[in-house]
Amino acid sequence: MSTLAINTVDRLDRPSAYYVGKNKRRSRYNDDDEPEREDPMAKLKDATTLYVGNLSFYTTEEQIHELFSKCGEIKRLVMGLDRFNKTPCGFCFVEYYTHQDALDCLKYIGGTKLDERIIRTDLDPGFEEGRQYGRGKSGGQVRDEYREEYDPGRGGYGRAYDEQRQREEEQYGEGR
């Protein structure tokens, strides 16, 4: 590896813009009360956990294990579940034993396919109880509420739209 501080091409083992942005936003609100808040990036310094997104609802733990163990032994795998049905809702947390394995996973597995879908990986400060549940209104992930495209691997249309469409269909019948 380069002995110099800069690289000639971007690194894939950095936290995503999503993580950085989310924390920037938070810090703006919190600045006044907590002037000495710790740097959110510091929490990722030794992170061994990854958030994995864009999974199909049908992808199993075994499949995830099979792919992700190519980057090192997996310490813990937590499936993301629908808050109400307790069924997989398309994300998970993968925890490795070492920080390096997690970084390698970002570099070598993030953005490749699992179960024929391109998956997304992001460095995560660590799993906490409760985070395995979707935060969307209907129990799944927020992104699946308003999705306009049909995605057979993730329950069809976005749920909010789906509801609306069903309502419209019913009302159409009533109107006649």
Partner: peptide, 9 residues
Amino acid sequence: NNLDFNRVA
């Protein structure tokens, strides 16, 4: 081997 941090590049 040097650029393992960006497989696309």
